[in-house]
């Protein structure tokens, strides 16, 4: 009974799937899917290597400091870093006093309350604070940016396919639209052509415009490429501040597990030594 019912149900599903396949195939043959414009012009992130690539790669504190400088001078006016706290900057190699000074002099103040009147007020940041948002709310952010919302950058490297190389490619990827780009895909007002961006037209104006836009404290030549990579490295750290710690721990854990597994395998062979030997004895006797 189960088998007869099953057979009928099976025929039903197979039949309907075949029906769908038939119509799908007819549609596919009569109107082969055309390649989309996005697909044709979109480019994959350039192959940029970072110091923190791979299991043995680690962040370069010097680079992170440079990247932080780029963030501070170029990005911070529009983009928040809301899940990162000033105290986290210790990871970049800043001292206690430096972190305190960075927080105190941060260009955006932390919202607070006037203790006498209860009116909204603002105060300087302290290391325990997270980076204050540049805009009070989404509406304010959109109003100031031609209705585009500058995303928070705390997690941006993990929130985009391609990670840090994608960021660096995007930042240096602004260019004039190619001549054969269809009119409807050309950047409208307030948009900028960038083949690394998913739909080719990004609302963010080119942030890194000229060599030497930032004067690095450590004397590194601030080329556009250098600034793009440094800030991408900084944002990678901001998205995953524990990555170095994680990989260090991982190497110890994996080595430990490998030794434990080998020992376990040897112990397993020992335990099975008796039965195996008996089998061999029986086989030999025959």
């Amino acid at each position: 009974m189960v088998r007869i019912l099953g057979f009928l149900v099976g025929l039903g599903f197979v039949g309907v799937a075949a029906w769908s396949l038939l119509w799908g195939a007819i549609a596919y043959i009569s109107e082969p899917p055309a390649e989309t414009v996005e697909h044709r012009f979109h480019e994959h992130p350039r192959d940029i290597s970072f110091s923190f690539d791979g299991p043995f790669g680690r962040y370069n504190a010097q680079q992170l400091q440079r990247g932080f400088q780029v963030y501070k001078e170029v990005c911070a006016a529009c983009h928040g870093l809301h899940y990162v706290a000033f105290r986290d900057l210790h990871d970049l190699g800043y001292s206690e006093a430096e972190v305190r000074a960075i927080a105190d002099q941060w260009q955006i103040q932390v919202p607070s309350i006037n203790p006498d009147t209860g009116e909204p007020a603002a105060r300087n940041a302290i290391p325990a604070d997270r980076f204050p948002n540049p805009y009070a709310n989404e509406t304010a952010a959109r109003a100031a940016n031609n209705n585009a919302l500058p995303p928070d950058l705390s997690l941006i490297v993990k929130a985009r396919e391609g990670g840090a190389p994608y960021m660096a490619s995007l930042l240096t990827g602004y260019q004039d639209p190619p001549g054969n780009l269809p009119a409807e895909n050309r950047p409208g007002t307030g948009l900028h052509y960038n083949p690394y961006f998913a739909n080719l037209n990004i609302a963010m104006p080119p942030p890194i415009t000229a060599d030497g836009q930032v004067t690095y404290a450590d004397g590194t030549q601030a080329t556009r490429e250098q600034m793009a990579e440094d800030v991408s490295a900084f944002l990678a750290w901001a998205a995953e501040p524990k990555a170095d710690q994680r990989k260090n721990m991982g190497i110890v854990v994996v080595l430990f597990l490998l030794i434990a597994t080998i020992l376990g395998r040897m112990a397993y062979k020992n335990v099975w030594y008796g039965p195996k030997r008996e089998d061999e004895a029986v086989q030999a006797a025959e």
Binding site: F256, I259, A260, G264, M266, A267, N270, Y273
Partner: peptide, 18 residues
């Protein structure tokens, strides 16, 4: 063999404790 067995069980124990 006893030594290896003891070592394997100890490793598992240390791993669990860690």
């Amino acid at each position: 063999r006893d030594f290896i067995n003891v070592a394997a069980v100890s490793f598992a124990g240390v791993g669990g404790a860690a």
